[in-house]
Amino acid sequence: MKIVYTRPKCLKPVPNHYCPGCGHSIIHRLICELVDEMNMRGRIICIPPAGCAVLAYNYFDFDVCESAHGRGCAIATGFKRAQPDRIIFTYQGDGDMAAIGTAETLHAANRGEKITSIFVNNAVYGMTGGQMAPTTMIGQKTTTSPYGRRTEVEGYPLKITELIATLPGAAYVVRTSLANPAKIRETKKAIKKAFEVQMAGAGYSLVEVLSPCPTNWKVSPREAFAYLEEKMEKEYPIGVMKDYTAKKDK
């Protein structure tokens, strides 16, 4: 018998702090698998966010630089401009990417910054205890939208990925989901392509991953993954929004 699936080398052999059924841990693993497979450990640098994933450096066995809330893309820009031959990626949550860091994100994308952003959208602020995020669904109850998100009060779920897809500096923009093993495999493929796009110097690449937060959604992991597929994917359709390589093929 041969091993067909094992824990990636770049994922430190320690238990993580994420809640049971958290999407972060899946995405961490996918990234580490890719770092191993693509032999990137010696030239990859990760900028995790402020949020649950701030502790990513406890799990990633490659270089990691902390960021202030929302500043990931600016710090990544500094890294990339200083070391153009390195692979730089930000790992950001919905608050980090789409609320406090919207300006940094949009402008990095618009400059065609040759960096990659992994944007984990779970429609809620996890680390601070389940407050409303810009991506919170209409009607979704959070600790700061106890009556459910109302568009007339809190506005609409922000689709930052669609926004970024309109920018000429963005080369590869895609939304994926963790809802089942097939979609997780798609997510891995998307992240791989995003890194390849960066290495090709084509511009900004963004992978939005719809990810469950069972704890703050107050459901079981099983139910959370079902919700992901049944509700979130309706509001946030998965698929490739922009792919510069596809254009070239035509």
């Binding site: 041969k2 067909v4 994922l11 841990s25 899946i26 693993r29 997780i184």
Partner: peptide, 20 residues
Amino acid sequence: KGCALCAVMCPEAAIEVCRG
């Protein structure tokens, strides 16, 4: 049967799969 779906899903990367 060693399909590895469990390992793909496992958030903790706690499952190793062998096949053959």
